Amino acid sequence: MKRIIFLVIRLIYRIPGWLMTIHRYNKHKEEVSFEERFDFTQRLIRKVNEKSRVNIHCYGQENLPEEQGYLMAPNHQGLFDALILIGTHDRPFRFVIKKELMNVFVLKDVLRMIDALAIDRENIRASVKVIRQVSKDMKSGISYVIFPEGTRCRQQNKMLEFKGGTFKSVMDAKKPIVPVALIDCYKVFDNNSIEKVDAQIHYLPPIFYEEYQDMSSMEVARLVQSKVEQCILENENKF
């Protein structure tokens, strides 16, 4: 909470303009391309990250496939996860999020602006509809981020079990999966401090369709989780 208050104070002169732009983009979405809306969001997030007293260490951007339409599958540590992803991934992408986030003040407007898809985990029919939409989008060249744990893990750099359902859309689309390891991102907002912290993001080598085509979704989930887990074990004491 202290860091959030600190950020609001440091960026108070920018916030009214940002909110007006977000409102305008949402009101006239059909007139503004997704790429333009994502670019605005990325510039906003990079400014927030710059002022947050977080040293961001990004690795493996060269591993990202040249062709768009892949799935990024990171572990989930908290609010800063989205900020570090948007801040370090140069090309536009979309999020699949839990529907509860669409009720959060201001955040819901940002998510709507960047075309995030909300999934209701209690509604199977609605969930299947989202999975089909994501698969269709990836086939057309739109990349996505889905957190395979389904919710954040509150045990620092530990992880919850990756869910197989996360990967059904990318498996149907026959597109690459990029495992993403987030390390120490929980420290940014969980430590209730404004002391400088280090946070890492590692884009790992992609897993292509040819490598997972004979696997079940649960086997794919375990494979991706093992790669993320190994990266965390190798790097969590780096700083």
Rank of each mutant, 00 (worst) to 15 (best):
I114Y: 12
S143D: 00
V104M: 05
F95Y: 15
I119Q: 01
P148G: 10
Q155G: 11
M138V: 10
V128F: 15
P148D: 02
V106P: 06
Y144P: 08
K129H: 11
M113T: 14
I131M: 15
L160Q: 03
A116N: 12
G150L: 15
S143Q: 00
M138Q: 08
R152S: 11
Y144C: 00
M113Q: 02
L117D: 13
L160F: 14
M102I: 14
N123Q: 00
M102H: 01
I146V: 04
F95E: 00
G150K: 10
K98W: 01
E149G: 04
P148N: 05
Y144H: 07
I97T: 04
K158P: 03
K108V: 09
M138S: 06
E161T: 10
E149I: 01
K136P: 04
V110Q: 13
L101G: 14
I124F: 10
E149Q: 12
F105N: 12
V104Q: 09
I131V: 09
R121A: 10
V96T: 00
I146E: 08
F105T: 07
N123K: 08
T151F: 10
M138T: 14
K129F: 08
Q155A: 12
V134S: 01
F147P: 09
R154A: 11
I146D: 05
D109H: 13
E161L: 06
R112F: 11
L117W: 12
R112S: 14
N157V: 01
G150C: 07
R125A: 05
S127Q: 06
M102K: 04
I146F: 11
L107A: 09
L107M: 03
E161R: 14
I114C: 02
V104F: 14
R121K: 14
F147R: 14
R152E: 11
S127Y: 13
S143H: 14
I114G: 02
Q155P: 01
D109I: 12
K158Y: 04
P148E: 02
R112K: 15
K136N: 12
F105Q: 08
C153Y: 03
I142Q: 13
A118P: 03
A116H: 07
E149A: 10
K108R: 06
R121C: 00
D137K: 07
I131L: 15
D115L: 13
D137Y: 00
V134N: 01
M102S: 09
R152T: 05
E161W: 11
N157E: 03
I114K: 05
D115C: 05
S135D: 07
D137V: 05
V145S: 03
R112I: 15
V130P: 01
F162T: 10
K139R: 15
I142K: 12
I124R: 05
R132D: 12
V134L: 13
S127L: 12
F95H: 04
V110M: 14
G141Y: 06
P148V: 03
F147E: 08
K158H: 06
R125H: 14
S135G: 13
R112H: 08
I131F: 13
G141S: 09
R94N: 05
V130Y: 12
F147S: 00
G141I: 06
R154T: 10
V145C: 08
R94T: 05
K136C: 08
L101W: 00
V128G: 05
K163S: 00
G150T: 09
M159L: 02
M102C: 07
